[in-house]
Design a protein around this nucleic acid. Structure first.
Lengths: 234, 234
DNA sequence: AGTCGTCAAGAGCGGTGCTCTCGTTTTCTG
DNA sequence: CAGAAAACGAGAGCACCGCTCTTGACGACT
């Protein structure tokens, strides 16, 4: 039964995969705005209306591309983190940051789809919430592990966090970053926004013609942020 | 002579202004993708081809909207900075940050046009470079003034900047932020990317359903970043 | 073997940016 | 002042888009 039904379903799955693949290639070359169902159909030798048997609308196709993008980015981050020495927490943070930057520069249009302006009105259905936080999850694992290893020590700073706000942060991030004190979470949040702010600036061209060499500047910023968070070697 | 010529040119300028105004309203409601020359023409009671007498292409219309956006944001930032006590440098930094965030939240689609994914292939002609750095210019003025007032003192940090990189930063930002030492510039750069990273996250919906109250969290982050930069009261 | 669901194809709708042509009107000039 | 020149709005049209609906053929299940 499964075998007979699979005859149909297998070709269907294959065609679906092929559509997504062609769409991703179009996305990579033309950008999100240039993704056209008709062009995908043309490249597949199908007529445009046939695509709608597989994706009910252009936005649905975009949504799967978005999910794939989050997964690809998350995978890259996970790989980079796993390759770093487990107790070198500043190093793991730096590896995470460079993974994000490298992936974004290698896939600018997909990065724009994930972290740029929302494309249509906007969509973002619920299936996205899982892959969307894969990078954050890695970050949380690093922070939690550093905290457990006693390698998350607040640097001397003239600025203290409001205890109420710190508690709120602790509560709302308890699942992703368990055990991390609230003030460290707030510092980590600043570092996180700085990371994506930098990458967005660079990918979206705001840094055009600024520093001669952006890579060492990025690396310095990343390490300084790691120190600001309070990460030390375990 | 000017009066006679103005007969035509005045109505032309007026129509141009009206086109931009309608376009901005469409941009605010529909987003950059929903901006349609035909819709603008329809709303003006003109035929679509007539618009091309005033803007040679849709991208040109978008470009003027972008320039206007940079100017509006820059003006808001300048106003906020001017309203703060001149020698309260952490306060001026905080005012700048809140001005950026408030403006972005009030004009999300225009913010997306400025700091989101570049719209078509992308454009960004040279007329943009002036208004584009109005916010950065204010930031530079704050930093330079703080430095002159002796209110820019590096906080105790376990992380030192590479002198070569600091020198490079000093050289490339000498015009915008004269007199500011390189290591402070590097810290300021991190704070800058953190600011825009935060605002982009918030405007683009990445913070959806995170903290209950984003405003106090933002304010804390901003003040912590100010301390990280090394800003103190003069 | 017959029925029913799935599929690709085609035509078509309303929308887009943009081009070209054609009268008209305004401006500049001889 | 009259005529040339430039600017203008209107309209038709091209190629493209997302999306819908119908039609006919093929495959799968009873």
């Amino acid at each position: 039964m499964t075998a007979s039904r699979t005859a149909r379903e297998r070709v269907r799955a294959e065609l679906t995969r092929e559509i997504v693949e062609i769409a991703r290639r179009q996305l990579a070359t033309e950008g999100a705005g240039g993704l056209s169902l008709r062009a995908v159909a043309r490249e597949m030798g199908m007529v445009s209306s046939a695509i709608y048997r597989y994706f009910p609308s252009r936005d649905d196709l975009l949504t799967t591309l978005i999910i794939d993008g989050y997964n690809a980015l998350g995978e890259a981050v996970e790989r980079a983190d796993a390759a770093a020495p487990e107790d070198d927490f500043p190093g793991r943070w730096a590896a995470l940051c460079h993974a994000v930057r490298d992936w974004a520069l290698a896939h600018p249009h997909e990065y724009a789809l994930l972290y740029g302006s929302p494309v249509p009105g906007y969509q973002a259905p619920q299936d996205t919430i899982g892959p969307r936080v894969r990078d954050l999850t890695v970050f949380g694992a690093i922070l939690s592990a550093a905290q457990r290893a006693g390698a998350l020590t607040p640097p001397a700073t003239p600025f203290e966090a409001d205890p109420a706000l710190a508690g709120e942060a602790e509560a709302s991030l308890a699942d992703l970053m368990p055990g991390v004190p609230g003030d460290a979470l707030l510092r980590a949040l600043s570092a996180w926004t700085s990371l994506y702010g930098w990458v967005s600036f660079e990918v979206f061209g705001q840094f055009k013609g600024a520093f001669v060499d952006l890579r060492p500047a990025f690396d310095h910023s990343v390490r300084a942020l790691g120190a600001m968070i309070g990460l030390t070697r375990g």
